[in-house]
Design a protein around this nucleic acid. Structure first.
Length: 425
RNA sequence: GGAGAGGUGGCUGAGUGGUUGAAAGCGCUCCCCUGCUAAGGGAGUAUAGGGUAAUCCCCUAUCGAGGGUUCGAAUCCCUCCCUCUCCGCCA
């Protein structure tokens, strides 16, 4: 959520920033709502102040056993008109709230311009794709329709669900442990375990609601429960309604969760295999920092995600998302894209974003600056490190051998207890 | 799931209709006293929104959440959520 003071004072600047990401800010509506609000809120609060004063006087008069009939009549009338006005004001404030909640974050100045992913800026490329001296298979063929069983997924649930068995199920589990261990032991993150079901408030706080309900699985109408689409939601919401001490900052959490996405918008994309599913695993990094530290924190967090790819010796590149491709809540995002041999392309495996105070303003997540005792909004960041399905896919394809087996990257060998998997039977 | 008790500021904890945003204590900040430490004295110490250039000032809201009664609600009524104790069930 944007600061409404900023919206009021620097409307032009806000509009032109939002325009870069293709968001049309309805200035006419905004000015109309705001001028109405200003007038209505002013008179309503004044009347309320009057009524409060009057009520206080009635109380005093009653204690002195004076006659209060006239005062009570006046107050009664005031209460009636006030009720109407405050209803009207509540409606208006709700309208404004919804309007503001549906405005995306401002983007940083160094975010490249562009309409879609074709304008994303490649910052660097690490590692070079392996040259194969045999015809390569894609991950589904490597998975032999048993270790990766898409048909079983369809039977149990439906399309875009998978079943993993044997070495590949083991590979995924080993990767989860490897990633979490690395982030805890080398990057200083604290491991957390959180619910996979979250309430509406949590989803509004991080920005998934109210605008993107169709991407989510809602599982309970009575409580407004949803399956988490990313650990970002429960983990970032740990800061909701909190005021943290500056000596506790930065806070760095690592968390593994399954992620459930309805993905209504992307039917027809990546229909084969485990690239895009309704349920996938992810290890997520979340940071809460002072605003002055958040630029640096994004660089650091991205390096932590990169470090996993480096240790796995997977070729990847880093792109800065352009203004038209960047997510609703993010001010700046780096995507890590891993090399996928069967597609001869780099594909997203991690997305690292700085949300600045966009989420924390929604969720009232603050910190107290000990030097001046002032309370400020935290800045939040997060990044996948990494998405598991796609890491499994990348390892299978990049480490495949001519006999159909897959060599295990050095760093994973202790986790799997073997050097290669899927050996010919 | 059943029965009971409760949800008040950073914490403990008063407060059953009226000048209570809220006693008291603890904690914290500043000042005084003090050779040092300990002890003592004084002042201050919630958050959000709005009026504003403004962190001064003024107004409004907030005692789990949402409704209601009333001139006036932390206090009375209704619904919901949560916590604790006991029983049941269960991994």
């Amino acid at each position: 959520m944007l600061d409404s003071k900023l919206l009021r004072k620097e409307t032009k600047e806000v509009i032109s920033n939002l325009k870069r990401r293709g968001f049309e800010f309805d200035e006419t509506l905004w000015t109309k709502l705001e001028s109405k609000r200003k007038a209505l809120q002013g008179t309503t609060e004044n009347q309320q102040a009057k009524l409060n004063e009057l009520s206080k006087n009635i109380g005093i008069a009653k204690q002195n056993s004076e006659d209060t009939k006239d005062l009570e009549k006046m107050a009664s009338e005031l209460t009636a008109t006030l009720k109407e006005q405050s209803n009207e004001l509540d409606n208006l404030l709700e309208q404004i709230e919804n309007f503001v909640l549906s405005i995306p974050n401002l983007i940083d100045h160094d975010v490249p311009d562009g309409e879609d992913e074709t304008s994303n800026l490649e910052l660097k490329k690490i590692g070079s794709p392996r040259v194969f001296d045999f015809p390569i298979k894609d991950h589904l063929d490597i998975g032999r329709s048993y270790e990766i069983d898409m048909e079983a997924g369809v039977k149990l649930t439906g399309s875009r669900f998978k079943v993993l068995r044997n070495d590949i199920a083991h590979l995924q589990r080993g990767l989860i442990n490897f990633m979490i261990d690395t982030h805890v032991q080398e990057h200083g993150y604290e491991e957390v375990y959180v619910p996979y079901i979250v309430n509406k408030e949590s989803l509004i706080s991080t920005g998934q609601l109210p605008k993107f309900e169709e991407d989510l699985f809602k599982i309970d109408n009575k409580n407004d429960f949803y399956l988490t689409s990313t650990a970002e939601v429960p983990v970032t919401n740990l800061f909701r309604d909190e005021i943290l001490n500056s000596e506790n900052l930065p806070i760095k959490y690592v968390c593994h969760t399954p992620c459930f996405r309805s993905e209504a918008g992307s039917y027809g994309k990546d229909t084969k295999g485990i690239m895009r599913l309704h349920q996938f695993e992810k290890v997520e990094l979340v940071q809460a920092v002072e605003s002055s530290d958040s630029d640096e924190a994004l660089e650091e967090l991205t390096e932590h995600a990169e470090n996993i790819l480096k240790k796995l010796e997977l070729p990847y590149r880093v792109v800065s998302l352009c203004s038209g491709d960047i997510g609703f809540s993010a001010a700046k995002t780096y995507d890590l894209e891993v090399w996928v041999p069967s597609q001869q392309a780099y594909r997203e495996i991690s997305s690292c974003s700085n949300f600045r105070a966009f989420q924390t303003r929604r969720m009232k997540a603050r910190w107290k600056n000990n030097s001046d005792n002032k309370i400020e909004l935290l800045n939040t960041l997060n990044g996948s490190a990494l998405a598991l399905s796609r890491t499994v896919l990348a390892i299978l394809e990049n480490y495949q051998e001519s006999d159909g087996s897959v060599t295990i990257p050095d760093v994973l060998r202790n986790y799997l207890g073997k050097e290669s998997i899927l050996l010919p039977q």
